[in-house]
């Protein structure tokens, strides 16, 4: 196994990488869009939407953008059976770990 710094596991296939990559970019993009220099472009009074100035409505659009992107990712993971798979992996890992090291995660001898 290689010990390089990485963001996504090498165990992911191309499609999975693309999906996680896209959602990560949407989240980071939204974060940047709430600040200078992007927000100043939208931080204006008019037009009013739903009775609110554009500056406030714009932030609500961003809330929904993040919400729906994460919801889509969640649905996609759910459909692909990811949660069940990860659950199984974790359970298997735990059994291995318990057998190896019965108690305490930080012992004096560790430090």
């Amino acid at each position: 196994m290689s010990m390089k710094a990485r963001i996504f596991s090498t165990a992911l296939n191309k499609i999975e990488r693309r999906v996680y990559g896209t959602v990560t970019i949407v989240v980071i993009g939204t974060f940047l869009a709430t600040m200078w220099p992007i927000y100043p472009l939208f931080s204006r009074i008019r037009p009013f939407v739903l009775g609110m100035p554009a500056s406030l409505f714009y932030l609500l659009v961003l809330v929904f953008l993040v919400f729906f992107s994460l919801l889509a990712l969640y649905r996609w993971e759910d459909k692909g059976g990811k949660f069940e798979k990860n659950e199984k992996d974790t359970a298997a890992e735990m059994i291995k770990e318990t057998a190896r090291r019965p108690s305490g995660h930080l012992k004096a001898s560790d430090g």
Binding site: Y20, V27, F31, T34, S55, L56, L59, L62, V66, L70
Partner: peptide
């Protein structure tokens, strides 16, 4: 509108947890 920052940070604040 300075108060809008409270609305903004919560939008993505918890997203890192997903990962």
């Amino acid at each position: 509108a300075a108060a809008f920052y409270i609305l903004s940070y919560g939008t993505v604040g918890l997203a890192p947890w997903y990962f």
